[in-house]
C-alpha cells in the first residue's frame, strides 16, 4: 500500500532515521528503530514534516525485527518521496501508529506482489509466516527483486520472479499476469494475497477468478 493524500487528523510522532538507502534505481529502503508493536501487513502513515499530509506505506520488516523498514520508490513531482529520498541518518521522520488489517496467517497461501508491493509479504516472511507460501513477484527489471537473496535462500523454488522487460537466470520472462495465466490446477481452497498497483491487482484477480478461485479467497491490497 502506498500513499493516500489528505490532511490527517492523526497524531504524528517523530523518529530518527537510521538509514535511507537506494537499493535499486529510484527505490529506497528507509529504517528507524522500532519502539512499538505491529502486525505484519500493517501500514504506517509517514510525513517529512508534522504539518504535511500523511501517506501510507506498508511496513517492510518483521514484527520482531529491531528496526522498522519502509520500501518506497520516488514518484517524480510527488509531494513526499522526492523529499523523503534526501533524508539522511539522524534526520526526523514523522509517523503515525501502525494500522490496517491486511494480515497473513500460518495457512498455505499464494503471495503475489508487483514492485514495492513485496513489502507486506516480506514483513510476513520476516515474522515467521513464510512456510507453505508460494511467493510470486513481478517487476519490470531484474534489479527490482528486492530482498531476493534472502527470499531465494528461504523459499527456494516457491519464490518465482517474473521480469517483464529483461531476461535473467532463474527468472520467468514475462508479466506476473502471464505467469499466473500459465498455471493450472491452482488450489481453490487456499488464499491468494495480492499487493500492487490497481492494474496489477484487478488483472491478477480476474485471472484467479477465471481459474475457479472463489472471490472470497482473493485478498487484495492496493497502492493508493
Amino acid at each position: 500500500m502506498n500513499s493516500v493524500e489528505s490532511k490527517p487528523n492523526v497524531k504524528f510522532k517523530s523518529v530518527s532515521i537510521l538509514s535511507n538507502t537506494e537499493i535499486s534505481p529510484n527505490v529506497f529502503l528507509l529504517s528507524f528503530k522500532r519502539d512499538f508493536a505491529f502486525k505484519a501487513g500493517q501500514v504506517l502513515g509517514i510525513a517529512v514534516s508534522s504539518n504535511d499530509d500523511a501517506r501510507l506505506y506498508s511496513i517492510a520488516s518483521g514484527e520482531n525485527d529491531e528496526n522498522i523498514s519502509l520500501l518506497y520508490n520516488i514518484k517524480p513531482g510527488g509531494k513526499l518521496t522526492p523529499n523523503l529520498a534526501i533524508l539522511r541518518p539522524d534526520d526526523t521522520l514523522w509517523i503515525t501508529v501502525p494500522f490496517g488489517s491486511y494480515a497473513g496467517s500460518d495457512e498455505p497461501a499464494y503471495w503475489i506482489a508487483a514492485g514495492t508491493g513485496i513489502a507486506p509479504f516480506y514483513s510476513m516472511f520476516r515474522s515467521g509466516l513464510g512456510s507453505d507460501k508460494v511467493l510470486i513477484h513481478g517487476s519490470r527489471t531484474l534489479d527490482a527483486f528486492y530482498f531476493s537473496d534472502e527470499l531465494l535462500n528461504d523459499f527456494g523454488p516457491r519464490y518465482v520472479r517474473c521480469c517483464s522487460q529483461q531476461e535473467g537466470e532463474g527468472t520467468y520472462h514475462g508479466r506476473v499476469t502471464q505467469y499466473l495465466e500459465s498455471l493450472n490446477n491452482l488450489p481453490e481452497d487456499q488464499k491468494y494475497y495480492l499487493c500492487g498497483s490497481a492494474e496489477m491487482v484487478v488483472e491478477c484477480r480476474e485471472i484467479l477468478l477465471s481459474k475457479g478461485i472463489p472471490f472470497s479467497n482473493v485478498v487484495a491490497e492496493i497502492y493508493f
Binding site: M1, F99, S101, Y102, V201, V219, A220, I222
Partner: peptide
C-alpha cells in the same frame, strides 16, 4: 474486505 480492499485500511 472481500468486496472492497479499502476495508483493510479504513474499516
Amino acid at each position: 474486505r472481500k468486496l472492497m480492499p479499502i476495508q483493510h485500511v479504513y474499516p
